[in-house]
Structures are given as structure tokens and as C-alpha cells.
Simulated assay, not measured.
Amino acid sequence: MPRLPDFEAWAVFASVAEGLSFSRAAEDLGLSKATVSKAVARLEARLGARLFHRTSRRLALTEAGRAAREDAAALLAAGEAAEARALDANGAPRGRVRLAAPMSFGVAHVAPVLPEFLTAHPQMSVDLHLSDAQVDLVGGGFDLGLRIAALADSSLRVRRLCGVRRSLVATPDYLARHGRPEHPDDLKRHACLGYAYLPTPDRWHFSDSTGVTASVAPEGPLRANNADALAPALRAGLGLAVQPDFTIWDDLRAGRLERVMPGWQPPPIALNLVMPPGLPRPARVSALIAYLERAFATVPWAQNATEAATEAAGESSPSPPSRRAAG
């Protein structure tokens, strides 16, 4: 009879490969570092290949490790899902939900709402993965992801939680010193603070209430791959930036920032829950989905489609003269 796969070693390898750390995997799994190391060594011996390059300072996947990582994550996710389905039949939702979210949004808005959820579901845990880079939900073994974008068609299942308004903003001091742009073309004469993970970071796109579009190549002293990293320069009056309301809501209310060029809006985006394809979902995942839907239904910066259209029309009346349409 052939030997069964070493499922424990595969699961341990998946955890180490995700964080590229034996210590972190040991902490996440509740095992000793020696146990984690032995499990990986056992799998390497069975496969006849090294899975990691180890030095005193860093850990990196070998070619064999990179090839095995996705399968390991899928095995771990399948095992957790099977266990969760069995537990679901015995009462309240229980088990771990792996949730991916953007860094700034996750720290400021997701992490603060999780304690209430975890208090209400003491048999559950959430593994929150924060990164502004778009993660592979299926390959990474995630149950859910939060994405703030206009999503392209894909095999993922999508549930829209709320609209997210983006605005061009600056400090009153910056506007007093440099003037207030009225049309996207005016931004060529302004310092622009850029966000690297926009769909087109080298081009800002706008449209007015009549559907006329315009775009500009932003130039300025700073571009970053995290919205919070732009905040100090923005508040210091070093330039203008296109920011989502959830990062600037308090600054707008306090008058530290002002909306600029309200007759021209960036393309609409939304806060979306994305899920790997396939049903049924475990009760633990459904419980978190329902909670997040409630949590983000009434936040002050949320904007539904009707509000967005009404505000855009109201703020742009009378609409600015369209000097030029651009792609």
C-alpha cells in the first residue's frame, strides 16, 4: 500500500512559504520552531529537493519551493474548509477565516471592527493579511478579500459593500500659494502627489457631469505605493493628491484639506468583497461576510451610486468649460 502524503508537513510548509519565516509560522501554528523545521526537512527528504535557501539573514524559496507553494496553500485551504464544514454541522460558526485587505484601509477601518465580530464569535479567528498589492486569493489560500477598485471581470465572486468617493484635494495653504485648478489641464502647473497602485499611475483620468473626459500626466515631488505615506506631504502643503474619502474624511471635516476641481471626478470605485468561486461557503466565512456588510453599510465616507450621481451633478453645476476632451 502506498504511503499517505505527509499532510502535516505540507501544511507547515505552506505557512512558512507564506511569510518566509520559520518563527512566524511556528507562532501562527502554535508549534515550536524545532517542530516546524523538522516538518519542512521531512517534506524535503520525501520530495528529494530543497524547498528553501537558508542564510543567517533571509529565507527564500528555491525553484522547487516556488513550484510547490501553490499546491501546499491549496491543500491547507482544503483541509481547513473540510474541517470547518464538519464543525458547522455541530453548532455555531467556528474556525479561521483568512482575509486579505489593502494596507491603509485594513489598519484604519478593518482592524477596528474585528473585535466586535470576534467577541460575538468566540470560536472563530481571523487571519488578516494586509498589502496594497493585489493578492492571489486562490493561490494564497484566502477565504475573502477586500478590494477598493472598479473590478474587471474574473472568475472571482464579487459582492459590492459601498461606493467610495475619490477627490482631488489639497490644503488651504497650498491653494492660497499656488491657486485653485479648475480643469485637469491646470494640473500641469501644479505639484501632484501620486499613488503607485492606481490602474494608470502615470495618468490621472477625470470626467465631468456631461460625460466629457480629460486626463493629465501628474508630476510632483512624491509617489508612494501606500496612501498613508502621501498624507504627511499632502498635509504639509507640498502638492495635490487624488485620495479616497476613507483616508481624508477627518481632514475634510476639520478643514485641513479641501476638495479641488469638484466639477471633475476620477472614475468611480467601490469597496468590494471578493471570494474564490464555488459553493457552498463554510458558515465561518458567511458569518464574516454578513458582519462586514453591516459594518460598512453606514460608515460616514460610504457613498452609494445614487449619492455619487447626485453629488457629482450638484457640485458641477454650472459645469466648467470643457477646454479639451482627452482619453
Rank of each mutant, 00 (worst) to 15 (best):
1 M>L: 10
1 M>Q: 09
4 L>S: 12
6 D>G: 03
6 D>A: 10
11 A>F: 06
12 V>F: 04
16 V>M: 02
23 S>R: 15
24 R>L: 12
27 E>F: 01
30 G>H: 02
33 K>R: 15
40 V>R: 06
44 E>N: 07
46 R>F: 03
50 R>Q: 12
52 F>D: 09
57 R>Y: 13
57 R>L: 09
58 R>G: 05
59 L>K: 08
60 A>F: 11
65 G>Q: 05
66 R>M: 10
68 A>S: 13
74 A>C: 09
75 L>W: 06
77 A>Q: 12
84 A>E: 02
86 A>L: 13
88 D>A: 03
90 N>G: 11
91 G>Q: 03
92 A>L: 11
93 P>G: 02
94 R>K: 10
98 R>H: 10
98 R>K: 13
100 A>R: 00
101 A>I: 04
102 P>V: 06
104 S>K: 03
105 F>E: 08
106 G>L: 04
107 V>F: 12
108 A>E: 14
111 A>E: 15
113 V>D: 06
114 L>A: 02
117 F>S: 08
117 F>D: 10
122 P>Q: 03
124 M>W: 05
125 S>Y: 07
130 L>F: 10
136 D>R: 07
138 V>N: 05
138 V>Y: 05
141 G>K: 00
145 G>N: 02
146 L>N: 06
147 R>D: 10
147 R>Q: 15
155 S>C: 09
159 R>M: 08
159 R>H: 14
159 R>Y: 05
160 R>F: 00
163 G>R: 12
168 L>K: 10
168 L>F: 10
171 T>W: 04
171 T>R: 01
172 P>Y: 01
173 D>S: 15
173 D>P: 00
173 D>K: 08
179 G>Y: 11
182 E>Q: 14
184 P>Y: 04
185 D>R: 11
190 H>N: 00
191 A>T: 09
192 C>T: 08
192 C>F: 07
192 C>R: 08
192 C>M: 15
193 L>R: 03
193 L>P: 01
194 G>P: 02
198 L>G: 01
199 P>S: 11
201 P>V: 01
205 H>F: 00
206 F>V: 02
211 G>Q: 01
212 V>T: 13
212 V>S: 14
213 T>D: 01
214 A>L: 07
216 V>I: 10
219 E>F: 04
219 E>A: 12
221 P>C: 08
221 P>F: 05
223 R>L: 05
229 A>F: 13
230 L>P: 03
230 L>W: 05
232 P>K: 08
233 A>S: 15
237 G>S: 03
240 L>N: 09
240 L>G: 10
241 A>W: 07
242 V>A: 04
251 D>L: 12
252 L>F: 11
257 L>K: 04
257 L>G: 01
259 R>V: 15
260 V>K: 07
264 W>T: 05
265 Q>H: 09
266 P>N: 09
268 P>F: 00
270 A>Y: 09
272 N>F: 00
275 M>S: 11
283 A>N: 07
283 A>D: 08
284 R>I: 01
284 R>M: 00
286 S>F: 04
289 I>Q: 06
293 E>R: 11
295 A>N: 04
296 F>H: 07
297 A>Q: 14
299 V>F: 02
300 P>Y: 02
302 A>D: 09
302 A>R: 08
303 Q>S: 14
306 T>H: 12
307 E>D: 13
308 A>E: 13
310 T>S: 14
315 E>W: 05
322 S>T: 15
325 A>T: 12
326 A>H: 05
